[in-house]
């Protein structure tokens, strides 16, 4: 089974010389279809950098980032934008819905940006909202929705158009625990249906939803299994520095 996302020896350095900050130092891992991988680590460990690079929003200093077989590093900016419209879906902690657009328009956004006719895009968006269970709120504006409802819209937007890679950055961070669990269940269901998912979180109990857990500390993967007790890994100092 081929990997939907594969990172090979990815380095990311911000700044130069004395002031250089090494956000990622030789990170490699793969996520396959049907798999949900949780990325964990303390603050500043490079989790979010990893996610922006995986989504083509940022470029690695060195290394390869393959999404469905194409190396994002070698693609042009426009081609990377195209990948985000067709292959990659983002879910953010802050929902990041566009307040000027209704729920259904927010979900239809990637399809419309991809040039799909607006009627078709809206139909697909409605189907995606149906999946996350809030199709009745389709014509509401984000400001008139609760946080959980907004995050469901964001998930619908991340999966609309049969995209196979879902990148979720602390998707439950702004939600109460009950709503958060529901959101994770939705992401899990999506992966079970064949998508590949990356879930950045710092809460150990969320990692339970994942097939595998990747631990980052100071930009280095210190464990890539599902077996080690999570709490011990979080507390342990970095294996190599």
């Amino acid at each position: 089974m081929s990997a939907v996302l594969r990172l090979v020896d990815v380095h990311r350095t911000h700044g130069e010389g004395e002031a250089a900050v090494h956000a990622l130092r030789g990170v490699s891992f793969a996520v396959h279809s049907g798999e949900l991988v949780a990325v964990m680590g303390p603050s500043g460990s490079g989790k979010s950098t990893l996610l922006t690079i995986a989504g083509g929003l940022d470029q690695p200093t060195s290394g390869r980032v393959e999404v469905e077989g194409s190396d994002l590093v070698t693609l042009s900016q426009a081609q990377r934008a195209r990948m985000r419209r067709t292959s990659i879906g983002y879910v953010f902690q802050g929902f990041n819905l566009i307040p000027a657009l209704t729920a259904v328009e927010n979900v239809a956004l990637p399809r419309e940006l991809d040039g799909v006719r607006s009627r078709t895009a809206r139909a697909e968006a409605r189907a995606a909202l149906e999946e996350v269970g809030i199709v009745d709120l389709a014509d509401r504006f984000p400001d008139d929705m609760s946080g959980g409802q907004q995050q469901r819209v964001a998930i619908a937007r991340a999966v609309v158009g049969e995209r196979r890679l879902i990148l979720a950055d602390e998707p439950t961070g702004a939600l109460d625990s009950e709503t958060g669990e529901e959101i994770l269940r939705l992401i899990r269901a999506r992966c079970d249906a064949g998508a590949a998912g990356v879930l950045v979180t710092h809460e150990a109990r969320h990692a339970a939803w994942a097939d595998r857990v990747v631990f980052l500390r100071d930009g280095v993967v210190i464990d890539e299994s599902g077996s080690a007790p999570v709490d011990r890994l979080l507390d342990e100092p970095a294996a190599s520095r």
Binding site: A78, R84, T86, L113, R157
Partner: peptide
């Protein structure tokens, strides 16, 4: 946000 969902 537009950029993140793939706007050209």
């Amino acid at each position: 946000t537009l950029a993140a969902v793939g706007a050209r």
